[in-house]
């Protein structure tokens, strides 16, 4: 009997440890991995109003699109205005399926079309990181979707036409670098969301992947990053691309100054190996002439 009580006590103790002690240690590693993905994905750029010194992740500046003006919401752990009540499953559903906590369809201005490619583990790590950041009660600003896009159920049609849920499956016949580069470029860093042109319904034109977008977010022009020698990165070495991702400095001594300045602040935190992988992947793309207008 005594032995039994002891075992129960031990089990209780272990149970308690599992939910506090060792779990915390596990969380810490997860949070760190999540922070890395967070930098690669440049979540800050849309979800923080940096220009007005807004609280981190408490909601972004206006993002003008042909379908209206959108405000990336508060994604801090605040239970009222943030995602504090979201479980990891809720979070995964948003990234993997583009659906909110209530199951509603999210606007693809949130690039779930790319994030869907992420692995479950990476999504869990990202969730751990975001939940570990300071909460802010900042209220969300309502989106100003153009008619008729304010009616979310319409997004179902768009999804049927343009959305394929992930995760991204590695290509067995390609190198580890290439696969890692594709994963980072296509899923986590969602490069195509700016660098691939969109059709009249705002979906990425997969046949013109990374060929540049003259109508990027906030009317910024995103250049061709395929290896086309005239209008793309054809004359750039792998090292040139890696250096740009590290520093934001182009081979001609100029710097990227628009949205890409934020992106390179994130990619500058990646490992050299990961920047190399992205460069390898970009150089492997079919060279396409820049998307003109």
């Amino acid at each position: 009997m005594k032995g039994h009580t002891g075992r129960v006590a031990l089990v209780c103790l272990l149970g308690g440890l599992a939910s506090v002690g060792p779990a915390r240690a596990g969380d810490q590693a997860s949070i760190e991995r999540g922070g890395y993905l967070f930098a690669a994905g440049d979540c800050i750029a849309c979800h923080t109003d940096q220009k007005n010194h807004g609280a981190p992740l408490a909601g972004g500046p206006a993002l003008a699109t042909p379908f209206g003006t959108f405000f990336a919401p508060n994604i801090t752990a605040d239970p009222e205005n943030g995602i504090g009540r979201w479980s990891e499953d809720d979070f995964r559903r948003a990234l993997r399926e583009g659906r909110g906590k209530g199951g509603e369809y999210l606007y693809p201005v949130f690039p779930y079309t790319s994030f869907t490619g992420m692995t479950d583990r990476d999504i869990a790590d990202l969730y751990a990181y975001i939940m570990a950041q300071p909460a802010s009660p900042q209220p969300n600003r309502p989106n100003q979707a153009r008619f008729p896009f304010g009616f979310r159920p319409l997004l179902l049609g768009w999804r049927i036409l343009f959305f394929r849920a992930g995760p991204l499956q590695p290509a067995a016949d390609e190198s580890a670098d290439w696969n890692r580069g594709r994963y980072l470029s296509e899923a986590v860093a969602h490069c195509g969301e700016c660098h691939t042109p969109r059709n009249f319904l705002g979906a990425l034109e997969s046949g013109r992947a990374m060929a540049g977008n003259p109508d990027g977010p906030d009317k910024q022009k995103a250049p061709n990053v395929t290896p086309d020698p005239e209008t793309g990165l054809g004359k750039w070495s792998l090292e040139d691309i890696e250096y740009l991702l590290d520093t934001g400095i182009k081979p001609d001594g100029d710097v990227v100054g628009s949205g890409m300045a934020d992106v390179t602040r994130g990619t500058g935190k990646l490992t050299k190996a990961d920047r190399h992988a992205i460069a390898v992947y970009l150089k492997s793309l079919p060279p396409l002439r820049a998307t003109g207008k």
Binding site: P214, K221, A222, T231, L233, G248, I249, G257, A261, T264
Partner: peptide
């Protein structure tokens, strides 16, 4: 460089 170009320069045309 970026600290000035980002707020004060329009992005240059996309041709590299």
């Amino acid at each position: 460089c970026q600290g000035c170009h980002k707020p004060f320069r329009e992005p240059p045309p996309p041709a590299n």
